[in-house]
Amino acid sequence: MKKIFALVVIILFSVFSIYPVLYVLTVSLRTDQAFQANQLNFFGDNTGFQNFTRLITETDFLIWFRNSVLVSGTSTILGVTMAATAAYALSRYSFKAKRWILFSLLTTQMFPATMLMLPFFIILAKLQLINSFMGLFIIYASTALPFCIWQMKAYYDTLPIDLEEAALLDGCSKWQVFYKIILPISSPALVITGLFSFMAAWSEYMIAAIVLQDPALYTLPLGLKSFQASLATQWGLYAAAALIVSIPVVLLFFMLSRYLISGLTVGSVKG
């Protein structure tokens, strides 16, 4: 009885979570570039895969895709490396300003992002990083950093300190302890942190729009937006692209869902 109830609830919520995606799918299959669909209609008169083929053959979709992979991948590696090390220091080393640093990391999440656009632009212009991936690497890695550090620190905090003490007694250096012992057993948290940074970079639009001005450097969200004109959006192309954009992330989630559960312990239990 309980199980049936649970099953019904779960099925309802699964429908709830999938339906909008199916809706996007029908829009992508329509050939008239319109957005409103009467109902979920997969096999109407004007449905077909034209939008998908047009996307690949007529637009720069593949270039955007490559750029996005490059930008998100690099910022993720950069961000995770920095977060993993900084968080370890914050977890194992206690010093006066530590509480203060931790709290200010949290506060960086509190500032309305839209107001950061103009200063971002000015910094990047002064550093001559406009129109280069380097600018994006730095911004993406650093805006994701506070959350990643928090996340990693919470995970390190759950690891028993005895392990490291034993290794130190065996003659390992501190760096060796971190690199050879702590890092490998932290892989669930590393994977999750990476996934977060990747997702944030993958779908980020506003910063990319001010940094990248050359269409050859466009990332996917920028490319997608170019189908959108204020009164003449190419909805079919937009929806088709949106689905393809979502696939890698869904796949990543799918492959990593094992880690997802064990790695995500936002500020978990003490000791």
Partner: peptide, 27 residues
């Protein structure tokens, strides 16, 4: 006293300072 820990911590703090704290003061 703890050069390793600081070496691990400082790059992140510096970059956060540049990208997040500077815009904040600008605002």
């Amino acid at each position: 006293a703890q050069p390793l820990y600081w070496a691990m911590l400082l790059p992140s703090l510096l970059i956060i300072f540049l990208i997040v704290v500077y815009p904040f003061f600008y605002n």
